[in-house]
């Protein structure tokens, strides 16, 4: 008898706990309803990509020495380097260069290893086309610079979460000159002038 009563008691207790947890969950959901939406209304508002954003790759034709390092470090040997040996100058002469962004995974290895820094990442990410072959960029298309979000009069640029002032979660209507939380890179450099050499050495060793 006592056993049965204990079972009933446990059952009731569990049911009560379940109700309590559902109530807690409901209060969390309700709390979320009061918060401002995080939506970025895309064609009219755009986030400013961060400095390290890995977007469409930019290529400078004149800097390239056709060494094909980018092809070798690429996971799928994607860049197409078309050159011929110029016997007069005894140098490789680059004729065409192309990357297919329909296949590229934007890992940035080519940019990392390019000896002449002729490859670089841009902040362009709007790569939609009607035909995937249009994403095969040749050296002319690769040489174009993207339009900056901050320069576009049609677009309201919004800062990403990491670039907002401390305690601010909403990128809309920031006061002018509001700085992000923490120090900027140049401030960090200015604040620690003496230690730079020693750290460099320790890094090298």
């Amino acid at each position: 008898m006592m056993n049965f009563l204990k079972q009933v008691g446990d059952y009731v207790k569990e049911a009560g706990q379940a109700a309590k947890f559902i109530g807690q969950g409901l209060s969390v959901t309700f709390d979320h309803m009061k918060r401002r939406p995080v939506t970025v209304q895309y064609p009219y508002e755009k986030l400013i990509p961060s400095e390290r954003f890995r977007g469409r790759i930019h290529f400078e034709f004149d800097k390239c020495i056709a060494c094909e390092v980018c092809v070798r470090v690429c996971p799928i040997n994607l860049p197409v380097v078309d050159w011929e040996f110029n016997s007069a100058t005894k140098k490789k002469k680059l004729k065409h260069y192309s990357i297919d962004f329909g296949v590229c995974i934007f890992c940035g290895n080519c940019v990392e290893y390019c000896p002449t820094n002729c490859l670089s990442m841009t902040e362009e990410y709007e790569l939609s086309t009607y035909d995937r072959h249009e994403l095969n960029y040749d050296n002319v298309a690769l040489g174009r610079l993207p339009y900056k979000v901050t320069d576009d009069p049609m677009v309201t640029p919004l800062r990403e979460l990491a670039y907002l002032p401390k305690g601010v979660l909403d990128p809309h209507d920031l006061p002018a000159g509001a700085q992000r939380a923490g120090l900027r890179p140049e401030q960090i450099v200015a604040a620690t002038p003496a230690k730079t050499d020693s750290t460099k050495e320790s890094n090298a060793s």
């Binding site: 959901t29 979320h32 309803m33 918060r35 401002r36 939406p37 209304q41």
Partner: peptide
Amino acid sequence: KISAAAQQRI
């Protein structure tokens, strides 16, 4: 609308 609000959308 309420679903959007609960997920902080518009």
